[in-house]
Amino acid sequence: MEIRPQAVVIPKETDHLEQGKYGPIFPKTPACYGFTIIAKVKPGRADTIRNYGNTLAKALEADPQFLAPLKLHYLRWVLFDDDTRFMYQGIFDTDFDKYTEDAIALFTQAGLNTAFENLEGFPEDWKTNPEAFITFVREHHCPSFIEYGEYPYFTADEIKKALKIKSSLSEMLDQLQ
């Protein structure tokens, strides 16, 4: 099986896209699904966001599967413009609606807040009002216009499975020597 890198151009207009519960469902791309938001940081809250990053890292140290329900490939958080703006970029295997619902459920069950609470305009009732959470994300979403995948359309689970097989095969070959 040959794996060929691919790119897909995403249209600027989304009126023709299938509508989900919370708006247009952007197509799956070679990089899977994802979104990027850029929002203003509440004054004086940049360090709180950085500290929240530490909290999330510690939660993953304690339970490496903590974020597994989100089917993530990557997350990237960036503070910029002298810590006045924040960018969140996530790449995952489910569509936007499912990812958002799963994220709200996960953080609510874990009793954790979100770094987004430190952003201007983020709804305080996000745990009980998914529509407000989604409205905030949609209003701050900066859609891609092209997405590329070196290993197109593979899910995080498929990649982990392939790496596990590779590791097992390497271990088996090492034992034969």
Rank of each mutant, 00 (worst) to 15 (best):
G20I: 04
Y148L: 15
A115R: 00
T100W: 03
A105R: 12
D63V: 06
Y74N: 13
G20F: 03
G149I: 05
A115C: 03
E131K: 13
Y88A: 07
F66D: 07
G149V: 11
E120G: 02
R45V: 02
H141P: 03
L67W: 05
G20Q: 06
N54W: 09
P43D: 09
I134V: 15
D81K: 13
E18T: 13
I159R: 10
E131Q: 14
A59N: 08
N118Y: 01
E18D: 06
P130Q: 07
E139P: 05
K166Q: 15
R138G: 02
K40H: 07
L75E: 15
E18K: 12
L163Q: 15
I165E: 14
L70C: 05
F136A: 02
F154W: 10
P30I: 06
Q109D: 15
P27G: 04
I104P: 00
F122M: 03
E18Y: 00
I134N: 07
Y148G: 04
D157E: 15
I165N: 09
G53V: 01
P69K: 13
S170I: 15
S144P: 03
N113A: 09
E150V: 09
D93Y: 05
A7K: 13
Q19T: 12
D93K: 04
T155S: 14
Y99Q: 07
P143K: 06
Y88T: 04
P130N: 05
H16I: 06
R85D: 04
P24A: 12
H73E: 13
A57T: 12
D63F: 01
Q6T: 10
T48H: 11
M87E: 14
T100N: 04
A103R: 10
L17N: 01
I146T: 11
Y99V: 03
Y148W: 12
D93A: 07
A103D: 07
E147S: 14
D102C: 07
A46R: 03
W126C: 02
N118M: 10
T14S: 08
K98L: 15
F80G: 04
K71F: 03
C32K: 12
D83H: 02
